[in-house]
Each structure stands twice: as structure tokens, then as C-alpha cells.
Write a protein that binds this DNA or RNA. Structure first.
Length: 150
DNA sequence: GCCAACGTTGGC
DNA sequence: GCCAACGTTGGC
């Protein structure tokens, strides 16, 4: 059982969008960063992840989601119309992958980046490091439990 | 909207 | 393989 943190811009896809989606699941498509992709490949069914709202008024953790489908090729990379189209990726040799996630719960309150920063010393997560741009990152069990009890 | 930080690209 | 130029991310 592993833990993760996954970022999404709520203007593109929010925790509410996921809660209202069919079966409350969605493919996590559009990841175009190798490090983030490699983390998705490591994900196992039943792994849990914090759903993080980025690039918005109050960035922070808003909910918990569960990995419900293992990594498979991200078909949006092949779609010329798609925002995340990548001409280097082909059907035979796909570059990008995605998992599917299911809504677990909305947190009783938003745990803002600002609040998390106050525990920077203790948490030491990639999320809290300056200039961090990684959209998917592992979370240790200790970090997970600490954040959950907030 | 600004801009710092970072990843990627491509010329050499 | 280096590195400048460029595009993107994401907090503010």
C-alpha cells in the first residue's frame, strides 16, 4: 500500500468534478512529465492519494482518491485535437501513461499549502520545496497520517 | 498578470 | 555533451 499526491487545476478538473463524474472515477490523463509518469507506473490498485488543487485562489489538499486502474497508455497523447497531444507518441510506442482514480472522500476542510508550509521542517515533502513543479509525487505513510490528522 | 524555477529542445 | 533559448508550471 503506497500513498501519493496528485495535483489538478480545479478550473480544469476539480474534486467536485470527480465526485460528480460517472462512477466517481476518471482517467488521470494529460501527464507529460517523465518523473510523474514513472510514479504512475509504480501505482498499485487500492493505493490512496491526496487530491491537490493547484494554480487557484487557495492551493491545497481537498480530498482523497483511490487508484482503481493500473497505468495504461494515455490515448489523449495521440489525439491531435487534444491539448496534450504529443506527436512523438504513437499507438505502437506510446510514451505517456495514465491511471484511473476513484473518489474516496472530500476532506472536512481544505488543508492549504500555506498551512502545510508551517510543517515544512517536519514533513519535508517535494510539494513544499521551492520551485516544485512535480504534479504527482509519493507521500510516506508518516506524512500521510500526519496530514490526515490535521 | 507577473515571474521564478524548472524541464525540454536543438544548434553546435 | 554542453548550454542558450524557449515553453510551462504554479504561487502570489
Amino acid at each position: 500500500m503506497q500513498y501519493w499526491l496528485m495535483k489538478s487545476e480545479p478550473s480544469a478538473f476539480s474534486i467536485d468534478d470527480l465526485a460528480n463524474a460517472p462512477h466517481q472515477t476518471t482517467p488521470w490523463d494529460g501527464v507529460r512529465n517523465y518523473q510523474a509518469r514513472n510514479f504512475m507506473k509504480q501505482m498499485q490498485l487500492g493505493d490512496l492519494a491526496f487530491f491537490y488543487h493547484s494554480n487557484c485562489q487557495v492551493p491545497g489538499i481537498v480530498g482523497i482518491i483511490e487508484i482503481c486502474k493500473l497505468a495504461y497508455p494515455d490515448f489523449t497523447a495521440l489525439d491531435k485535437q487534444d491539448l496534450h497531444y504529443d506527436p512523438k507518441s504513437t499507438l505502437e510506442k506510446p510514451i505517456w501513461e495514465m491511471v484511473e482514480v476513484r473518489f474516496k472522500e472530500q476532506l472536512p476542510r481544505l488543508i492549504s499549502l500555506k498551512e502545510l508550509q508551517t510543517y515544512h521542517q517536519h514533513l519535508d515533502m517535494p510539494l513544499l520545496r521551492k520551485g516544485n513543479r512535480l504534479s504527482i509525487m509519493p507521500v510516506t505513510k508518516e506524512q500521510w497520517l500526519f496530514i490526515q490528522q490535521l
